[in-house]
Design a protein around this nucleic acid. Structure first.
Lengths: 217, 217
DNA sequence: GCAACGTCGTGAAATTTTCCCGGCGCTGGC
DNA sequence: GCCAGCGCCGGGAAAATTTCACGACGTTGC
């Protein structure tokens, strides 16, 4: 019996690579491809593949959100995240959203194939480099923003990264600029950073902000 | 007569994709693959391929630097940059470094093949989305940091993004912290940004800072 | 030779950041 | 019911920073 697979990646040439690697394996068959999260969700519902291989950084709704939606529709869906981000933060987000595996694109093809088999067999598959990252992040004790911040603080953090002035943020939240400034200061304190620049770097590392979130130049 | 190609990308599965697409074309043959810039340089010298297809974001020496080195060794080298960055800033950097083409990974396989043929024929190949980006960046008039800043200012900008405190930067430059603060202020003025966070965002857009530059979490 | 510019630095004003405080509402024991 | 704890909102004042105006010095180019 052969397992059916849905490939999700916004780079067509990359999908070609997955396909080439996977179809060398007996028992695997790629039945559909999607270029963004929304399309992935649609195709999952219509094609009901046994496994989804999903990239994270995509236009429109990203990979994490796509994972969430698919799992909401089918609690048993098997989704393997396959991405360039060698970053513990992304892995945590993806797994929490419901992914059953996380493999980085730097991994050799065998690792991908192995992970595909493991996830199909009901196991959780995490590539060694990410295991290592996760261990490091535990040791280094860098506070995970999503954990130490209250919901409101996290909201302010997102806005700080996305919008421009304290006043604008105060307006969208309907609070006084003073409150935003206070929270801004409190956030930096909780995350243990001294400057705004460090704050942005931390946000990048933890995947709260992505290079792709930026508007066009 | 068939053209020989060197593939450079740190993701082996992605190289598999290039290969699969390219080898469907008669007259093209992939003779070598590299996973980082240094290896690319070595292989270029030993294999002397007709064309190099190069990713930008790679560990160690990045794609732009690899392009520069290869072109330094062989002024006539034909290098096609093929990357995920849909960003005018990166394209400008790559072309200035000596690349003969710039195609984004979101492009359909035909665009890549077309660009390969064009570069082999001695033409400059730029994918339509980047053409559009370049046009926009001209129109929007966003100051390119590399252009409006003096060398010293640019140096300080890089350090601001990389290091932490004003004092540290002052020390590495052997000037007073006050000078660094003054330049910091002047830089924000010249680039037309109001806050440090905006400054980092602009740096990300223009490729002065990359998500990959960050240390591990 | 001198005007223009980049670099470095001072000092003082203006603004922001930070810290400490109180108030309000909710939740979870007891 | 009552109180402790915590998240949330903001005021006020001290502390730090950002910003601005200014001068000095060397280089470059006309």
């Amino acid at each position: 019996m052969t397992a059916t697979i849905l490939l999700v990646d916004d780079h067509s040439v990359v999908r070609e690579g997955y396909r080439s690697v996977l179809e060398k394996q007996p028992g695997l068959r790629v039945i559909a491809e999607a270029g963004d999260g929304a399309e992935a969700y649609r195709l999952f519902k219509s094609e009901t593949p046994d496994l989804v291989i999903m990239d994270l950084s995509m236009p429109g709704i990203g990979g994490v959100e796509a994972v969430r939606r698919i799992r909401q529709w089918d609690k048993a869906a098997k989704i393997l995240v396959f991405t360039m981000h060698e970053n513990a933060g992304f892995a945590v987000q993806a797994i929490r959203a419901g992914a059953r595996g996380y493999v980085t694109k730097t991994s050799p093809p065998e690792t991908l194939v192995r992970a595909v088999m493991d996830v199909l067999a009901g196991k959780i598959a995490i590539s060694p480099d990410i295991d290592h990252e996760l261990a490091l992040s535990r040791i280094s004790g860098e506070s995970s923003a999503a954990d130490v911040l209250t919901p409101r603080e996290f909201e302010v953090l997102r806005l700080l990264l996305a919008e421009n002035t304290t006043e604008e943020i105060a307006e969208t939240l309907h609070v006084s600029p003073k409150t935003v400034a206070n929270l801004h200061s409190l956030i930096k304190d909780k995350l243990g950073v001294g400057s705004d620049i460090e704050l942005v770097r931390l946000a990048l590392r933890q995947g709260i902000l992505t290079q792709l979130d930026l508007g066009e130049a």
